[in-house]
Simulated assay, not measured.
Amino acid sequence: MVRLNNRRNAAAKWRCNVGPRIEKLLKKNATWSHDYKALQSSEQRFDLQGRGVACESGVISQHFVQLDMKSCTCRRWDLSALPCGHVIAALYSKGWSPDDFVSEWYTKKKYLEAYEVVINPIAGVAEWEKKDRSIAPPLYRRQPGRPKSKRTKEPGEEPLLAGVERLPKSYYSQITCGTCHQKGHNKRTCQRRNQVTTLTP
Score class of each variant (00 low, 15 high):
6 N>I: 08
6 N>T: 09
178 G>C: 08
51 R>K: 15
45 R>G: 03
173 S>T: 14
38 A>Q: 00
48 L>E: 01
73 T>I: 04
141 R>Y: 11
7 R>L: 13
84 C>I: 04
121 P>K: 06
193 R>M: 07
197 T>F: 11
90 A>P: 01
4 L>R: 11
92 Y>S: 07
146 R>Q: 09
12 A>R: 07
42 S>Q: 01
146 R>T: 13
67 L>R: 01
178 G>K: 08
50 G>F: 02
60 I>K: 10
181 H>S: 08
1 M>W: 06
36 Y>L: 08
56 E>I: 15
171 Y>I: 03
89 A>Y: 01
52 G>Y: 01
1 M>P: 13
4 L>S: 06
73 T>D: 04
121 P>H: 06
167 L>H: 13
102 V>A: 04
91 L>Y: 00
182 Q>E: 05
49 Q>T: 09
70 K>S: 11
175 I>M: 09
38 A>E: 00
189 T>Y: 05
75 R>D: 09
96 W>Q: 10
50 G>P: 01
52 G>Q: 01
171 Y>V: 08
189 T>K: 07
129 E>V: 15
167 L>E: 14
100 D>S: 12
11 A>M: 04
10 A>E: 06
168 P>M: 03
105 W>R: 14
69 M>V: 14
40 Q>I: 06
13 K>I: 07
190 C>M: 04
157 E>T: 09
34 H>I: 11
117 V>R: 13
154 E>H: 12
134 S>Y: 11
110 K>I: 11
197 T>A: 14
95 G>S: 03
185 H>N: 00
23 E>V: 00
36 Y>V: 03
131 K>S: 15
57 S>I: 15
102 V>M: 01
181 H>K: 12
155 P>E: 03
17 N>T: 15
31 T>V: 13
82 L>I: 15
63 H>T: 06
44 Q>G: 05
107 T>H: 10
86 H>P: 02
82 L>N: 01
104 E>W: 11
41 S>Y: 06
196 V>D: 07
117 V>L: 09
